[in-house]
Computed example of a mutant assay.
Amino acid sequence: MALVTEELRAKAEIYHGNDICQEKFKFLFQEMGFPRGLLPLKELVECGYVEETGFVWLKQKSKSEHYFEKIGKNVTYAPEITAYVEKLKITKLTGVKSKELLIWVTVNEIHANGLADGKVVFKTPTGLSRSFPSTAFDEEKQEEEEEKKEEK
């Protein structure tokens, strides 16, 4: 896992608190061509972005899990997630795992064909990849699904 060093922190835009962190990282991901609901993190305490290198980190209060209804996938998010973000590509991703059959698989890269085109590709360190429609990561639809679950 990439450590957020004091040197990185000195070069970064850093934000504290869930609301501002959610707003900033979702805006950044959307600007880079990813759906806003790609990383549905909860209770963010800090986020940072080093513009010159594209390094991003997101810190949550604790590990979280999310079920993407449209693709039938469980994903876990570590308390700290780091990555390098550029247009249509996230590399050196740490802290994200997806459940495939009975095992948790590390996701270390994410590529997009752009929001209009509609595909998001997830890659593992072993070179395996899976692609899904970007609509599976629409933020508004995820919120509606969570509200329906809470009503039951």
Rank of each mutant, 00 (worst) to 15 (best):
W104T: 08
V120M: 10
S64N: 13
N108D: 15
K42N: 11
T126C: 11
A12K: 06
L88C: 12
T126L: 14
L101N: 12
W57T: 02
E31L: 08
K24Y: 10
L115W: 03
L93H: 01
P40I: 09
G118H: 06
A83M: 14
E100Y: 14
V120D: 01
L41I: 04
K26M: 15
P40E: 03
P133R: 08
G37N: 01
E23G: 00
S64E: 11
S98K: 11
P35K: 00
T91N: 10
V85L: 07
E100K: 15
E13P: 00
L115I: 12
K92N: 13
L39N: 00
L58Q: 02
H16C: 06
E109I: 14
G127V: 06
S134R: 03
P35M: 07
H66A: 03
D138P: 03
T135R: 09
I103W: 13
E23Y: 13
V45D: 05
L41Y: 00
T106W: 10
N74P: 00
I71T: 04
L38P: 04
L41E: 01
K61M: 08
Y84M: 12
F132A: 07
G17I: 11
T82V: 10
Q22L: 14
T53M: 03
P125D: 13
S62H: 11
A112C: 08
E52G: 09
T76Q: 09
V96R: 03
S129C: 09
I103G: 00
E31T: 07
I14L: 07
E43C: 12
T106I: 14
I110F: 07
E140R: 15
T106N: 08
E86D: 04
L38G: 00
K42P: 00
P79D: 10
E31I: 09
T94W: 06
N113H: 06
T124K: 03
A116Q: 13
E51Y: 15
Q142R: 06
P35W: 03
S134I: 11
L44S: 05
G48F: 07
Y84K: 10
N74I: 09
S131Q: 04
R36Q: 04
F132K: 11
I71Q: 05
E86N: 11
T82C: 14
S64H: 09
W57K: 03
Y49I: 07
E46I: 11
G48P: 05
A136S: 09
L39S: 03
L39K: 01
D117Y: 10
T135G: 01
V56G: 03
L128H: 12
L41R: 02
E100F: 15
V75N: 02
K141E: 08
G54W: 04
N113I: 10
T5E: 07
E139P: 02
D19F: 12
K61V: 08
Y77M: 04
I103D: 11
K148D: 05
F122T: 08
D138I: 02
K148L: 15
R130G: 09
E145N: 12
A78W: 02
E145W: 15
T94A: 09
S98P: 00
F122Y: 13
E46C: 10
F29W: 04
G118E: 01
V56H: 02
P125Q: 11
A112I: 06
V85G: 03
L41S: 00
F68N: 00
P35L: 04
R36C: 05
W104D: 05
R36I: 00
L38W: 04
V105I: 13
E46N: 09
R9W: 06
E151M: 15
K92V: 05
T82Q: 12
A112V: 05
G48Y: 05
K99T: 01
V105E: 05
D19I: 14
D117C: 13
